[in-house]
Design a binder for these strands. Sequence first.
DNA 1: ACTATACGTAGGAAATTTCCTACCTGTCGC
DNA 2: GCGACAGGTAGGAAATTTCCTACGTATAGT
Lengths: 119, 119
Amino acid sequence: MDTRRISEDRIFAALASPVRREVLRLLREEGPQPVQQLAGHFAMARPSFSEHLRVLREAGLVTERKVGRQRLYELEAVPLNEVQQWLNPFERFWRDRLSGLCDLLDRMDDEPDRPDGEP
Amino acid sequence: MDTRRISEDRIFAALASPVRREVLRLLREEGPQPVQQLAGHFAMARPSFSEHLRVLREAGLVTERKVGRQRLYELEAVPLNEVQQWLNPFERFWRDRLSGLCDLLDRMDDEPDRPDGEP
DNA sequence: ACTATACGTAGGAAATTTCCTACCTGTCGC
DNA sequence: GCGACAGGTAGGAAATTTCCTACGTATAGT
């Protein structure tokens, strides 16, 4: 099976949309689902949502199987391994920087930013 | 400094372009460089390349500092940590699938569930 | 067989991205 | 100062993405 042979470009492009990332998260947390159920989370016409599913499918990030008249979409996480592999060589760079920032974050701890609007 | 507060969307969008991913790789492997040297790797007009640098800058993935009349670009890997964090919950899924391909015994040892629907 | 349901495809408008050719700004060497 | 160089901004064309409204196809239930 060459599930892994999908191009890096398609994978990163697929992940560029917040809608598609959310779909992947839903499939991960709630398991395989028919289109209907997935689409319920988005304020978007059905065909538009189908487009997003197609992009995910062509990136190899989901698989589809017919169950009755529904189509069950399931997470296919293997291509995400390519993202991980791309990311790996960068890790030591942000680890260095993050440990440097540790002191700073220690002080700010739990106050992200609250300009002054507090109703 | 809100380097870490850059939106996930911008980061993923920045990574969607192969040109920009290659820029990040170059900065990682060859260290900080002026625009000229970076641009040498791409068959593209200078202003187009500047556009890509701007996207990376606004995603917080590079920093710029002036040195003489050049501008040295440097990798800022911290935001990539957000990608890693997004990726983390998916890891066990692809590990399962990959080890399933490589080592069948591993599955039989630690997976009582049998989700295969074979016609 | 007929209808309703689930979901895709077709075709197109609007927004965004990606590239280009000018042109402008700031710095170095003289 | 003045010319050369590094690199950005402006404005626009072409391609791509993202969304829409129809319409087509397949299956389930009656």
